[in-house]
Each structure stands twice: as structure tokens, then as C-alpha cells.
Design a binder for these strands. Structure first.
Lengths: 125, 125
DNA sequence: GGTCTTGGTATCCAGACGGTTACCGACCTT
DNA sequence: AAGGTCGGTAACCGTCTGGATACCAAGACC
């Protein structure tokens, strides 16, 4: 429909600050899913591309959780053929701000975070 | 030492936005621990008061995790008698800002959050 | 000597979380 | 009719989290 650019081939390549981020949103993949929906609705199969390392079960689970909590909407179009679209709700969209704030924090304190993890008091665990 | 007011008797009474907050920091009790350290160092036994529903094991685990990641420092004083104090590191203190931002977000969207949970698409789970 | 406080540990256990593999019906194309 | 795509589900299983209960050594106090 909209000729938006396709999602990146693999979100795991550009591992963002989230890897050291001590915050977590929803389940394991929820924040990545939200990122993928940032610029408009996406189909299930579209989401599977950047999240290729997430099994269909896990992706469905994550989407269902986001839907249940009102962050994402799921719309089935049976127009010409089956099409399921996931989109951010306004609530879900509003979530992007505090998430970005957390990421900014992580970026600012990146060195300290690395330092604490590696050379800190104890590196066990 | 400092005659700061004691910690509240039970943090679970004044359940803050965190109950609906879709963000999570660290393990289950980490954010509550941080809140308790907000106004200065606290002893293990002090922390146990507001977190009375947290077992010693869980509290220790949470503190160790926070320490490992550089958010909290642990200091043993054997001055007159054994005293172990936990305090926020500068890094840990800097964390309070994005956490507060997340809480503000939750407060702003409180109604929507409740709505989605209860009357939303599906209330299962 | 017995007990209390302090700051924890040891052990066990249930449930949640997440991964693997396989499979499915509906529809479209060839 | 055969095969592909779409949007998933089913069954199984290991790991991790976190709770319950019990216990402990060192020092202070009585």
C-alpha cells in the first residue's frame, strides 16, 4: 500500500543501547517490535524479516501481549486476500518518548555502564 | 548517623504507578530498592522494613545485582559493630531521572492503561 | 551462659519465560 | 492438482526467576 522503505534486514546487527540498558519493556522482544511499527503499520510477515531470529511463536506472543495491553492494534483485512496488520495505538506511540529517554540515558552513561559490568566490583554473573 | 526519617513502613501500601508501568528496571525489586536509597545510604536491616514482603534472599539478590552493575555500592563498617551500608553510586543516582520520566508517563496515561487492561480487546492473561 | 540483632546463606520448589521443531488451513499461483 | 505464501498453532522442554522455609556465625547485651 504505502511504499515505505522495508524494515531493516536484521535488527540484531545494529544492536542499539538496549543491550546494556537496565530497563526493560514488556517481554523480550516487545521493544524491538515497537520500533518496527514506528513508521506505520506492518504485516506479520514484514515483522518476521528484521526479527528473523525470533520464532513465530515468540513473535505472536509478544504481539498478543502488546495488543492485550493496548499498545498495538491488530487488524485483519480480507480484501483481496488475507492481510493482518499490526499498528501502534496512540497509547503505544506515546510510549516511544519515555523509551527514547531511557535510550538517551544509556547513551550518555555508556562508558560507566561498560565499566561497571566489566571492571567493576565483581564480574561474576 | 544522620537522623533522616526512617523508611516508610511498607512500600506496598502506596503502590505507585509502577504497578501498571510496562517498563521494568533490573529484577523484580530493583526499582523499589533504588527508591529506598534515594535520600541516602541505608543498612540492610533498614531496607528490610519497607520491603517486608521481600525475602532476605531476594533482597540480597537484588542488591548484588545492582552492585554488580554499578548502581549501588556496598560498604562494610566494623567500627563499633558490624554495619553494612548500601548507597546509590552517581550512576545509580542518574538512573532516577529516566525512571521518574517513565513514572510520569504512566501517571499521564493511567486511564488508558487501566482501560486497555480491563475492558480492552481481551482480558485474558 | 543465653539471647538478640545483624547480615546474611542453604535448600527446595513452582511457575514463568523462552527456544525448537513440527504442523496447520486458507488462499493464490502455476 | 501441486506448490508457495500468509498467519499462525501445538507439543515439548530446558532455564531462569522468585518464593518459602530453615539455618548460621559474629558480636553486643543481659
Amino acid at each position: 500500500m504505502t511504499p515505505r522503505p522495508p524494515l531493516p534486514a536484521d535488527l540484531f546487527d545494529e544492536l542499539c543501547p538496549s543491550s546494556l540498558l537496565p530497563f526493560r519493556f514488556g517481554d523480550k522482544w516487545a521493544s524491538m517490535v515497537l520500533r518496527c511499527l514506528d513508521d506505520g503499520p506492518r504485516r506479520y510477515s514484514e515483522l518476521r524479516v528484521p526479527l528473523s531470529r525470533v520464532t513465530p511463536k515468540a513473535l505472536t506472543q509478544s504481539l498478543r501481549g502488546l495488543e492485550r495491553n493496548g499498545f498495538v492494534s491488530r487488524t485483519v483485512h480480507a480484501d483481496p486476500k488475507l492481510r493482518v496488520e499490526y499498528a501502534l495505538t496512540p497509547l503505544g506511540r506515546s510510549l516511544l518518548e519515555p523509551m527514547a529517554a531511557a535510550c538517551r540515558w544509556a547513551a550518555e552513561h555508556w562508558d560507566e555502564l561498560l565499566d561497571a559490568r566489566d571492571g567493576g566490583i565483581s564480574s561474576s554473573g
